[in-house]
Design a protein around this nucleic acid. Sequence first.
DNA 1: CTGTTAGCGCATTCAA
DNA 2: TTGAATGCGCTAACAG
Lengths: 339, 339
Amino acid sequence: MSTIKQIAKKAGVSPTTVSNVLNGNTARVSAKTRDKVEIILREENYIPNMAAHILAHNNSRIVGVIMFMEPRRNETVLEDPFSSTILGAIEVELRHNGYFMMLHTTSDQDEVLRLVRAWKLAGLILLWVPSTIIPVLKENILSPVIFIDSYVSDDIPSYLSVGLEDKQGGYEIVRYLLSMGHREMVFLANDSVFPGADYARFCGCREALEEEGLTLDEDRFIALSKDRKERFTLYRRLSTRPFPFTAIVFSADYYAAEAITFFQEVGVEIPRDLSVTGFDDNIYARLIRPRLTTVHQDVNRKGQAAVDLLMKSMHEEPLPIPHVRMPVRLKIRESVGRI
Amino acid sequence: MSTIKQIAKKAGVSPTTVSNVLNGNTARVSAKTRDKVEIILREENYIPNMAAHILAHNNSRIVGVIMFMEPRRNETVLEDPFSSTILGAIEVELRHNGYFMMLHTTSDQDEVLRLVRAWKLAGLILLWVPSTIIPVLKENILSPVIFIDSYVSDDIPSYLSVGLEDKQGGYEIVRYLLSMGHREMVFLANDSVFPGADYARFCGCREALEEEGLTLDEDRFIALSKDRKERFTLYRRLSTRPFPFTAIVFSADYYAAEAITFFQEVGVEIPRDLSVTGFDDNIYARLIRPRLTTVHQDVNRKGQAAVDLLMKSMHEEPLPIPHVRMPVRLKIRESVGRI
DNA sequence: CTGTTAGCGCATTCAA
DNA sequence: TTGAATGCGCTAACAG
């Protein structure tokens, strides 16, 4: 409730002096008055008015965290623990750095621009941005922007991004499948945003196959629908014998687990009849039986890396790498059988 | 970038007139000038400066959403899809009502007070608030506050809350267990915040037993540790034969699923050797085998109810009920066997 | 080292 | 129906 002006009056100094004390401007205020002011500050339980701060600075301490998603299509996205884990990680890091987090979901680029300008956002962390609008956003936003799990071209170092070694993940999973005797497989992708992380994983798969003189046709890349019913229609089709493949490579544990439960219900036993792999190594991979062979990623560290990049960029510190690619690790469990 | 002043100059009117147009103050501006101003507004892509708005109004369009949790102890909380689902629901509703969402996690009441004052928050949605600090918060915050899943005394109608028919849920699950021939059970609670939702569920269980002339001692209420290892120690102890009970009632699907996987690994078959029930009816209940018999709650509607209550309270509309208790529904699957 | 002053963008008097 | 003036709380440029 108390303002700088009131504190100043009580301390018998000017508002400027109080401001200098608050901002640690030690060079411009004597130790004695500083102590005096600080005592009053504490007595009065002074809390800065952020709005006034923004107005004076034309810059807030708010970071916008925006999840790009279709409205009303977000059920499965939100059931994936990925969202809350990375949100939690980002929130903790921002808070420790003295920033506030404004959370927003949208699929509209203009809404993002409005948000930035209206609140004078200090920075932006964007998740799952469709590749077509990345340049549009970057051009129209002056504050630092970090793209997470968005397909950002590596060529442009002014675009800051955090992603995964997606291709490597696909490569490793197929190397493993090959070692278990598999030759024919399909790839089930999370969505059809193209080119994106899923396609990179697919390319990794293909590379592993090609090293062995095998191929992976483009029509083996199937995008899963966001609609649960449509997905189950697909699972049904895939579980019709005889299978033209021996393994299904999923681009998310969530869907792999969902499919396994379906397969079991229609009498397709995993991994005896069909092998299944996932991607993420989250709770579903550990909970489902058989436990999933999958590609591990550390979601917490992803969030931390994003905030770290953002802070460095905001404080104009040198950036080690503009495009952070978090490592992946093959996690072998029991969902792949030997042919 | 453009301000009211600049728009005014371009339109050849005063800033006041522009402001009146913006705020739909139709009585104080002619249709002609209004049209003229509106065109310029669009041309210039005017975006209001929220900071100035707060400063003038002493009230922002921000709603603080605060999740009470121990720092560094939040791993399991965040793996539960409950968090992201309710967060998603709250975000959508707030956005549709023209409010912005500031997300924060803490276990410190003073941090909440600071947040409210610094940002002149329009309202607050608090999750999992320990019952001891509810009155403290309520006393020191003037803006409307909604408590979600916090133990708020029903006696005080000025405290607004959204919760669940917890007791009813416990009652129904035990009624069902009784009908399946179970007489001896233990209750595993999410945490030890006392009194809380978990204890209400426990009381519901007890009530169902007492109706049949049976009892449920206080020592059958066991609080699960937030620490994974400690939980597994408990599961091990519980899975040691002979069992002094035939069923384990969990207060969360997450832990029920976790325990089931453990039991299976040590050779305790569910539901043949032991019956297990959950609470929430989330993705884990459907994914785990055997599928969980549990108590259903609609998390989305919980979030909607919270925002609805908040909006009504902010606009000083009459509130139908200050303490919303969402209904529960028994969901019978395969994790309970007949004795 | 300290104080005065002006201005950030907006809404709200009060006057015209 | 319109406009000028004022203040919200804070910072920064400038003066003392």
